[in-house]
Design a protein around this nucleic acid. Structure first.
Length: 371
RNA sequence: GUGCCUAUAGCACAGUGGUUAGUGCACCGGGUUGUGGUCCCGGCUACGAGAGUUCAAUUCUCUCUAGGCACC
């Protein structure tokens, strides 16, 4: 299911063949937490050039629920999205959303942020839910420690994630495939904070169990960027070369460039979509096809706060180098006006642009490897 | 014309005879890393004018000006 097409130093050019289609890597996965990339239709997302999206087990478990999603025929059918879907397991949401949760060996009990109902999420339930969703790529249920945790906490989270990984694999292997696909993949998640020895133990333990792909979890959660770079390289150097590598949750454009140079194949991040909704847009500092990414540049883009005063009478497009529909049809002045009066269209136009920026970045990064 | 009420930031309002006059919205700037669509952190801008009482007035008194209400 994963072909390594070429390498250049540590960086890789690959191809994932999944039940719902082919994903060229390195790739970026737009986030459709509750079954939609906010403000966009599935058709929009496809037109932007996305080949896979990320959705979320935790949110879909709350609504429409396990039985609900089965009755609805799985998430692909519900969304009208024909390409691959990866689902996060819900582990991160326990860390990031709910302050009122309790982690035990069995799983996590927390209160729904919607109606306060108590939910007990276990590795087994997460697997069942992701199967019901019909994800092309299922993520293991994991325990994420905050970026400023003690070594003890990192170690505990890593060990627990390792034990949960085993349970996920068992459940994943035995439960009848509820949906359309017979070839869902299961990815494991490496934990261990910024400690190399813990990360090493995590990778080795997971590889021994055996998964279809491996993710780097627990970074971009408050630690220093240089620590994240160091740990990511350490992990990549110990991951199996013939399996896809997924950096979870990151990051800024220059971080993605850096991680690609270390050999990461897959990314997801809320930055392009969330920043778009708050008026922060990414723009190219030069023609993207002329950027030499092998030098790990950090200055190849600029952030534009389009709600700022400077855009008030600016008739120019958001980005002259961009080929998205927003840049081809509207001015900065119009976008600023739409934000200023609170029109929903502002968020949509900005989301289209920022996602296109990220997807274009990946296209350019792949081109360099193709050449 | 007469009486009463009001006058504090761009707007709506708090408040005080004594160091640096608050809040919300608006505006300006920054943030956002396995989603917060409404979030977070900063910043700017004010006691209508004049006189009096007082050690000290945005605060109390008077006059003026402007606005509101009522009555002719």
């Amino acid at each position: 299911m994963f072909e390594l097409l070429s390498t250049n130093g540590k960086s890789r050019r690959g191809r994932l063949t999944l039940p719902h289609g082919i994903v060229e890597t390195p790739c970026f996965m737009p986030i459709a937490t509750k079954g939609a990339v906010k403000t966009l239709s599935s058709e929009d997302v496809e037109a932007l050039g996305a080949s896979i999206v990320l959705s979320n087990t935790y949110h879909l478990l709350l609504r429409p629920g396990l039985e609900g999603i089965e009755k609805l025929g799985g998430l692909h059918h519900l969304m009208g999205w024909k390409k691959p879907i990866l689902t996060d397991s819900g582990g991160y949401q326990v860390f990031s959303l709910s302050k009122m949760n309790k982690t035990t060996e069995d799983g996590v009990t927390f209160q729904s942020h919607i109606d306060g109902k108590r939910i007990h999420l276990t590795p087994e339930l997460s697997m069942q839910m992701q199967k019901a969703i019909g994800s092309d790529i299922v993520m293991q249920f994991d325990d994420v420690a905050a970026g400023d945790s003690t070594r003890e906490r990192y170690e505990q989270a890593m060990e627990l994630s390792l034990r949960w990984a085993r349970r996920c694999k068992e459940e994943f292997s035995k439960t009848p495939r509820l949906n359309h696909s017979t070839t869902q993949s299961l990815f494991a998640i490496v934990q261990g904070g910024t400690h190399e020895d813990l990360r090493q133990k995590s990778v080795e333990g997971l590889v021994e169990i055996g998964f279809d792909g491996y993710a780097i979890g627990g970074l971009s959660v408050g630690e220093k960027r240089e620590d994240a770079y160091r740990v990511a390289e350490f992990i990549c150097d110990r991951m199996p070369a013939d399996k896809p590598r997924y950096f979870m949750g990151g990051g800024m454009p220059e971080e993605i460039v850096h991680y690609v140079s270390l050999g990461v194949d897959m990314f997801d991040c809320v930055i392009p979509t969330r920043n778009a909704r708050h008026g922060t847009l990414f723009t190219w500092a030069q023609d993207p096809s002329t950027i030499d990414f092998s030098k790990r540049p950090t200055d190849f883009y600029k952030k534009l706060n389009v709600t700022g005063e400077a855009s008030t009478f600016d008739e120019s497009p958001v980005d002259a180098w961009c080929d998205c529909s927003t840049c081809k049809t509207v001015s900065r002045a119009y976008l600023r006006h739409l934000f200023s009066v609170g029109e929903m269209l502002a968020m949509r136009l900005a989301t289209i642009h920022n996602l296109r920026f990220y997807l274009r970045l990946m296209e350019e990064l792949r081109k360099k490897k193709d050449a």
